[in-house]
Amino acid sequence: MKKFALIGAAGYIAPRHMRAIKDTGNVLVSAYDINDSVGIIDSISPDSEFFTEFERFQEHAFRLKRDQQTSLDYIAVCSPNYLHHAHISAGLRLGCDVICEKPLVPSVSILDELAVVERETGSRVFNILQLRHHQAILDLKAKVARENRAQKYDVELTYITSRGKWYMESWKGDPRKSFGVATNIGVHFYDMLHFIFGKLQRNVVHFSSDYKAAGYLEYEKARVRWFLSIDANDLPASVKGKKPTYRSITVGGEEMEFSEGFTDLHTTSYKEILAGRGYGLEDARHCVETVDVIRSSRIITPSNDEGHPALAGLIS
Protein backbone atom coordinates (compact mmCIF):
# COMPACT_ATOMS: atom_id res chain seq x y z
CA MET A 1 0.00 0.00 0.00
CA LYS A 2 1.47 3.32 -1.14
CA LYS A 3 0.97 6.51 0.86
CA PHE A 4 -0.25 9.58 -1.03
CA ALA A 5 -0.70 13.26 -0.35
CA LEU A 6 -2.75 15.54 -2.58
CA ILE A 7 -2.27 19.24 -3.37
CA GLY A 8 -5.35 21.04 -4.67
CA ALA A 9 -8.03 18.98 -2.91
CA ALA A 10 -10.91 21.42 -3.54
CA GLY A 11 -10.51 21.49 -7.31
CA TYR A 12 -12.78 19.95 -9.94
CA ILE A 13 -10.38 17.15 -10.88
CA ALA A 14 -9.21 16.22 -7.36
CA PRO A 15 -11.98 13.65 -6.65
CA ARG A 16 -10.82 11.60 -9.65
CA HIS A 17 -7.36 11.42 -8.11
CA MET A 18 -8.77 10.57 -4.69
CA ARG A 19 -10.82 7.74 -6.18
CA ALA A 20 -7.86 6.52 -8.22
CA ILE A 21 -5.74 6.35 -5.06
CA LYS A 22 -8.45 4.36 -3.27
CA ASP A 23 -9.35 2.14 -6.24
CA THR A 24 -5.71 1.11 -6.73
CA GLY A 25 -5.56 -0.08 -3.11
CA ASN A 26 -3.57 2.82 -1.72
CA VAL A 27 -4.21 5.45 0.95
CA LEU A 28 -4.57 9.23 0.96
CA VAL A 29 -2.64 10.34 4.04
CA SER A 30 -3.00 14.11 3.75
CA ALA A 31 -4.41 16.82 1.52
CA TYR A 32 -3.99 20.55 1.07
CA ASP A 33 -6.00 23.38 -0.44
CA ILE A 34 -6.44 27.04 0.44
CA ASN A 35 -10.19 26.39 0.15
CA ASP A 36 -11.93 24.12 2.65
CA SER A 37 -14.76 22.83 0.42
CA VAL A 38 -13.37 19.31 0.49
CA GLY A 39 -16.20 17.28 1.97
CA ILE A 40 -15.73 14.70 -0.79
CA ILE A 41 -12.81 13.38 1.30
CA ASP A 42 -15.32 11.94 3.80
CA SER A 43 -16.62 9.43 1.26
CA ILE A 44 -13.19 8.43 0.00
CA SER A 45 -10.57 8.86 2.72
CA PRO A 46 -12.15 10.17 5.94
CA ASP A 47 -8.98 9.65 8.00
CA SER A 48 -6.87 11.91 5.78
CA GLU A 49 -5.24 14.94 7.37
CA PHE A 50 -6.22 18.24 5.78
CA PHE A 51 -4.46 21.61 5.71
CA THR A 52 -5.37 25.03 4.33
CA GLU A 53 -1.82 26.39 4.71
CA PHE A 54 0.96 24.97 2.57
CA GLU A 55 3.58 25.47 5.28
CA ARG A 56 1.66 23.21 7.69
CA PHE A 57 1.07 20.62 4.97
CA GLN A 58 4.78 20.61 4.11
CA GLU A 59 5.87 20.40 7.73
CA HIS A 60 3.55 17.44 8.26
CA ALA A 61 5.11 15.71 5.25
CA PHE A 62 8.61 16.36 6.59
CA ARG A 63 7.66 14.80 9.93
CA LEU A 64 6.31 11.72 8.15
CA LYS A 65 9.55 11.49 6.18
CA ARG A 66 11.57 10.77 9.33
CA ASP A 67 10.17 7.25 9.56
CA GLN A 68 10.18 4.86 6.61
CA GLN A 69 6.91 3.39 7.88
CA THR A 70 5.09 6.72 7.57
CA SER A 71 6.94 8.58 4.81
CA LEU A 72 4.93 9.54 1.73
CA ASP A 73 5.50 7.72 -1.54
CA TYR A 74 3.59 9.97 -3.94
CA ILE A 75 2.21 13.49 -4.10
CA ALA A 76 -0.65 14.21 -6.52
CA VAL A 77 -0.76 17.79 -7.83
CA CYS A 78 -4.19 19.15 -8.82
CA SER A 79 -3.54 22.81 -8.09
CA PRO A 80 -4.07 25.70 -10.54
CA ASN A 81 -1.85 25.47 -13.62
CA TYR A 82 0.52 28.29 -12.67
CA LEU A 83 1.39 26.55 -9.39
CA HIS A 84 2.28 23.16 -10.89
CA HIS A 85 5.99 23.91 -11.19
CA ALA A 86 6.36 24.99 -7.56
CA HIS A 87 4.24 22.15 -6.18
CA ILE A 88 5.95 19.48 -8.29
CA SER A 89 9.36 20.73 -7.17
CA ALA A 90 8.24 20.72 -3.53
CA GLY A 91 7.00 17.15 -3.87
CA LEU A 92 10.24 15.97 -5.43
CA ARG A 93 12.26 17.61 -2.66
CA LEU A 94 10.12 15.81 -0.08
CA GLY A 95 11.48 12.60 -1.58
CA CYS A 96 8.23 11.69 -3.33
CA ASP A 97 7.37 10.79 -6.88
CA VAL A 98 4.82 13.28 -8.21
CA ILE A 99 1.70 12.71 -10.31
CA CYS A 100 0.52 15.95 -11.89
CA GLU A 101 -2.56 16.98 -13.81
CA LYS A 102 -2.33 18.54 -17.24
CA PRO A 103 -1.00 20.94 -18.35
CA LEU A 104 2.16 19.79 -16.62
CA VAL A 105 3.94 23.14 -17.10
CA PRO A 106 3.51 25.95 -19.66
CA SER A 107 6.93 25.95 -21.31
CA VAL A 108 9.86 23.80 -22.34
CA SER A 109 12.26 25.83 -20.18
CA ILE A 110 10.26 24.96 -17.04
CA LEU A 111 10.08 21.32 -18.15
CA ASP A 112 13.89 21.33 -18.37
CA GLU A 113 14.08 22.85 -14.87
CA LEU A 114 11.97 20.00 -13.51
CA ALA A 115 14.33 17.52 -15.15
CA VAL A 116 17.15 19.10 -13.13
CA VAL A 117 15.16 18.70 -9.90
CA GLU A 118 14.46 15.07 -10.81
CA ARG A 119 18.19 14.44 -11.13
CA GLU A 120 18.91 16.28 -7.87
CA THR A 121 16.34 14.31 -5.89
CA GLY A 122 16.23 10.94 -7.62
CA SER A 123 12.42 11.14 -7.70
CA ARG A 124 10.14 11.10 -10.76
CA VAL A 125 7.40 13.26 -12.26
CA PHE A 126 4.44 11.66 -14.03
CA ASN A 127 1.86 13.50 -16.11
CA ILE A 128 -1.79 12.47 -16.42
CA LEU A 129 -2.16 11.97 -20.18
CA GLN A 130 -5.42 10.08 -19.89
CA LEU A 131 -6.41 10.08 -23.55
CA ARG A 132 -3.56 7.66 -24.25
CA HIS A 133 -5.66 5.13 -22.31
CA HIS A 134 -9.01 5.82 -24.02
CA GLN A 135 -10.06 2.75 -26.02
CA ALA A 136 -11.32 4.75 -29.02
CA ILE A 137 -7.96 6.55 -29.22
CA LEU A 138 -6.03 3.30 -28.90
CA ASP A 139 -8.14 1.80 -31.68
CA LEU A 140 -7.47 4.78 -33.96
CA LYS A 141 -3.74 4.64 -33.23
CA ALA A 142 -3.73 0.93 -34.12
CA LYS A 143 -5.65 1.63 -37.34
CA VAL A 144 -3.19 4.34 -38.42
CA ALA A 145 -0.24 2.05 -37.69
CA ARG A 146 -1.88 -0.85 -39.53
CA GLU A 147 -2.75 1.14 -42.66
CA ASN A 148 0.71 2.79 -42.76
CA ARG A 149 -0.34 4.96 -45.68
CA ALA A 150 1.93 7.45 -47.39
CA GLN A 151 -0.76 10.12 -47.77
CA LYS A 152 -1.55 12.16 -44.68
CA TYR A 153 -4.95 11.84 -43.02
CA ASP A 154 -7.25 14.86 -43.04
CA VAL A 155 -8.35 15.31 -39.43
CA GLU A 156 -10.83 17.66 -37.79
CA LEU A 157 -10.73 18.00 -34.00
CA THR A 158 -13.58 19.74 -32.17
CA TYR A 159 -13.82 20.07 -28.41
CA ILE A 160 -16.52 22.21 -26.79
CA THR A 161 -16.93 22.12 -23.02
CA SER A 162 -19.53 24.57 -21.73
CA ARG A 163 -18.47 26.83 -18.87
CA GLY A 164 -20.63 29.31 -16.98
CA LYS A 165 -19.90 32.89 -15.94
CA TRP A 166 -17.92 31.62 -12.93
CA TYR A 167 -15.14 30.48 -15.26
CA MET A 168 -13.87 33.96 -16.11
CA GLU A 169 -14.01 34.97 -12.44
CA SER A 170 -11.84 32.02 -11.44
CA TRP A 171 -8.12 31.45 -11.99
CA LYS A 172 -9.06 29.55 -15.15
CA GLY A 173 -10.21 32.77 -16.78
CA ASP A 174 -6.91 34.51 -16.03
CA PRO A 175 -4.37 33.71 -18.80
CA ARG A 176 -1.52 34.45 -16.39
CA LYS A 177 -2.70 31.51 -14.26
CA SER A 178 -4.35 29.11 -16.71
CA PHE A 179 -2.16 30.06 -19.73
CA GLY A 180 -5.24 30.49 -21.90
CA VAL A 181 -8.03 28.30 -23.22
CA ALA A 182 -5.92 26.37 -25.74
CA THR A 183 -3.48 25.30 -23.01
CA ASN A 184 -6.03 24.74 -20.26
CA ILE A 185 -8.50 22.57 -22.16
CA GLY A 186 -6.45 21.56 -25.19
CA VAL A 187 -3.07 20.29 -24.05
CA HIS A 188 -4.09 16.62 -23.70
CA PHE A 189 -5.69 16.71 -27.16
CA TYR A 190 -2.42 17.89 -28.66
CA ASP A 191 -0.73 15.03 -26.84
CA MET A 192 -3.32 12.66 -28.26
CA LEU A 193 -2.68 13.87 -31.82
CA HIS A 194 1.06 13.38 -31.39
CA PHE A 195 0.42 9.94 -29.84
CA ILE A 196 -1.56 8.87 -32.93
CA PHE A 197 -0.01 10.76 -35.83
CA GLY A 198 3.64 11.30 -34.93
CA LYS A 199 5.91 14.32 -34.82
CA LEU A 200 4.52 17.83 -35.26
CA GLN A 201 5.79 19.62 -38.36
CA ARG A 202 3.69 22.81 -38.54
CA ASN A 203 1.72 24.80 -35.98
CA VAL A 204 -0.35 27.91 -36.81
CA VAL A 205 -3.13 29.76 -34.98
CA HIS A 206 -6.17 31.18 -36.78
CA PHE A 207 -8.21 32.52 -33.86
CA SER A 208 -7.71 33.08 -30.15
CA SER A 209 -9.89 34.67 -27.46
CA ASP A 210 -10.71 34.14 -23.80
CA TYR A 211 -13.44 31.67 -24.79
CA LYS A 212 -12.22 29.79 -27.86
CA ALA A 213 -9.29 29.12 -30.15
CA ALA A 214 -8.66 27.51 -33.52
CA GLY A 215 -5.74 26.60 -35.68
CA TYR A 216 -3.93 24.09 -37.86
CA LEU A 217 -1.41 21.40 -36.94
CA GLU A 218 0.46 19.21 -39.38
CA TYR A 219 1.95 15.94 -38.16
CA GLU A 220 3.95 13.23 -39.89
CA LYS A 221 0.73 11.37 -40.71
CA ALA A 222 -2.03 13.98 -40.48
CA ARG A 223 -3.24 17.46 -41.34
CA VAL A 224 -5.36 18.68 -38.42
CA ARG A 225 -7.86 21.52 -38.26
CA TRP A 226 -8.75 22.15 -34.61
CA PHE A 227 -11.31 24.16 -32.66
CA LEU A 228 -11.63 24.45 -28.87
CA SER A 229 -14.32 26.37 -26.99
CA ILE A 230 -15.88 26.90 -23.57
CA ASP A 231 -18.90 28.67 -25.12
CA ALA A 232 -22.12 26.62 -24.99
CA ASN A 233 -23.35 28.47 -28.09
CA ASP A 234 -20.78 26.53 -30.12
CA LEU A 235 -22.33 23.15 -29.26
CA PRO A 236 -23.84 21.41 -32.31
CA ALA A 237 -27.64 21.35 -32.47
CA SER A 238 -27.69 17.59 -31.88
CA VAL A 239 -26.03 18.07 -28.49
CA LYS A 240 -27.25 21.47 -27.31
CA GLY A 241 -29.59 21.17 -24.33
CA LYS A 242 -28.70 17.50 -23.84
CA LYS A 243 -25.00 17.45 -22.98
CA PRO A 244 -22.61 20.22 -21.89
CA THR A 245 -19.62 18.71 -23.66
CA TYR A 246 -18.86 17.65 -27.23
CA ARG A 247 -15.69 15.87 -28.32
CA SER A 248 -15.24 14.78 -31.90
CA ILE A 249 -12.48 13.68 -34.23
CA THR A 250 -13.15 13.28 -37.94
CA VAL A 251 -10.50 11.26 -39.76
CA GLY A 252 -10.78 11.12 -43.51
CA GLY A 253 -14.41 12.20 -43.30
CA GLU A 254 -15.30 9.47 -40.81
CA GLU A 255 -16.41 10.78 -37.41
CA MET A 256 -15.25 9.25 -34.17
CA GLU A 257 -17.33 10.81 -31.40
CA PHE A 258 -15.61 10.09 -28.11
CA SER A 259 -17.54 12.02 -25.48
CA GLU A 260 -17.98 8.84 -23.45
CA GLY A 261 -15.45 6.53 -21.85
CA PHE A 262 -13.67 9.03 -19.60
CA THR A 263 -14.94 7.86 -16.22
CA ASP A 264 -12.10 5.58 -15.16
CA LEU A 265 -9.15 6.95 -17.12
CA HIS A 266 -7.51 8.50 -14.06
CA THR A 267 -7.63 5.16 -12.27
CA THR A 268 -6.11 3.51 -15.36
CA SER A 269 -3.40 6.18 -15.38
CA TYR A 270 -2.61 5.49 -11.73
CA LYS A 271 -2.45 1.74 -12.34
CA GLU A 272 0.05 2.29 -15.14
CA ILE A 273 2.18 4.64 -13.03
CA LEU A 274 2.23 2.22 -10.10
CA ALA A 275 3.19 -0.59 -12.48
CA GLY A 276 6.19 1.41 -13.74
CA ARG A 277 4.62 2.41 -17.05
CA GLY A 278 3.73 6.04 -16.31
CA TYR A 279 4.29 8.97 -18.67
CA GLY A 280 7.16 11.18 -17.53
CA LEU A 281 8.64 14.54 -18.46
CA GLU A 282 9.89 13.51 -21.89
CA ASP A 283 6.50 12.02 -22.77
CA ALA A 284 4.93 15.40 -22.00
CA ARG A 285 7.54 17.43 -23.89
CA HIS A 286 5.77 17.35 -27.24
CA CYS A 287 2.44 18.76 -26.00
CA VAL A 288 4.22 21.34 -23.82
CA GLU A 289 6.13 22.53 -26.89
CA THR A 290 2.88 22.68 -28.86
CA VAL A 291 1.00 24.91 -26.40
CA ASP A 292 4.11 27.03 -25.85
CA VAL A 293 4.13 27.86 -29.57
CA ILE A 294 0.36 28.37 -29.74
CA ARG A 295 0.46 30.98 -26.96
CA SER A 296 3.28 32.94 -28.60
CA SER A 297 2.09 32.69 -32.21
CA ARG A 298 0.62 35.61 -34.10
CA ILE A 299 -2.84 35.05 -35.56
CA ILE A 300 -2.85 34.36 -39.29
CA THR A 301 -5.67 34.03 -41.82
CA PRO A 302 -6.19 30.39 -42.78
CA SER A 303 -5.05 29.48 -46.26
CA ASN A 304 -6.54 26.92 -48.64
CA ASP A 305 -8.38 24.26 -46.64
CA GLU A 306 -6.53 24.68 -43.33
CA GLY A 307 -9.30 26.50 -41.45
CA HIS A 308 -11.76 24.69 -39.17
CA PRO A 309 -15.42 25.11 -40.30
CA ALA A 310 -16.26 26.83 -37.00
CA LEU A 311 -14.10 29.76 -38.10
CA ALA A 312 -16.76 30.82 -40.59
CA GLY A 313 -18.77 32.47 -37.83
CA LEU A 314 -15.76 34.02 -36.12
CA ILE A 315 -13.75 35.76 -38.82
CA SER A 316 -14.74 37.54 -42.01
Rank of each mutant, 00 (worst) to 15 (best):
K102C: 02
R247D: 13
I21E: 00
Y159W: 11
S238H: 11
Y279A: 15
A150P: 13
G122C: 08
P46H: 02
G180A: 02
H84I: 05
Y211K: 14
I160K: 02
A182D: 10
A136I: 11
A5S: 02
G241V: 11
G253I: 14
G91C: 13
S123K: 15
D191H: 14
E147C: 15
I21Q: 00
F207A: 10
F207V: 10
G180S: 07
D42V: 04
P175E: 12
S45M: 01
T183Q: 05
E289S: 15
T161W: 12
A275N: 07
N184T: 08
Q68C: 13
F54Y: 03
L314H: 05
Q151Y: 00
G173P: 11
T24Q: 10
T158K: 03
P106M: 07
E255G: 06
E49K: 14
D47F: 06
H85P: 11
S209F: 11
P106K: 07
A284G: 01
K65I: 08
D47I: 09
D174E: 13
E147Y: 14
I88F: 08
N26C: 15
L64F: 01
G215V: 01
K3L: 08
E260I: 10
V108F: 08
F179E: 12
I160H: 06
Y32H: 08
G8V: 01
E306P: 06
S30K: 01
R132G: 02
M256H: 14
H134C: 08
M168P: 07
T70I: 12
K212G: 03
L72Q: 03
D154S: 14
E260K: 15
G173Y: 10
I294A: 08
K243P: 08
A86S: 15
D67I: 04
D139H: 09
S45R: 00
I110K: 13
G215Y: 00
E169K: 15
D73N: 10
H266D: 04
L83V: 01
R247T: 15
I13D: 01
L129F: 05
R298G: 12
F197G: 09
P46W: 04
Y216T: 05
S229P: 06
H60N: 13
L157M: 06
A150F: 15
I75A: 00
G173W: 02
A182Q: 03
T268E: 13
H194C: 09
I110Q: 10
K271C: 05
Q68D: 14
L281P: 09
L6R: 01
A182E: 03
R298S: 05
S297K: 03
G25W: 09
H286A: 13
R56I: 05
T268S: 09
N304D: 13
A237N: 11
G95D: 01
L228S: 07
G252V: 13
D292K: 08
V291G: 04
E254N: 07
P309Q: 05
Y270I: 12
S79D: 06
D139C: 00
N127D: 15
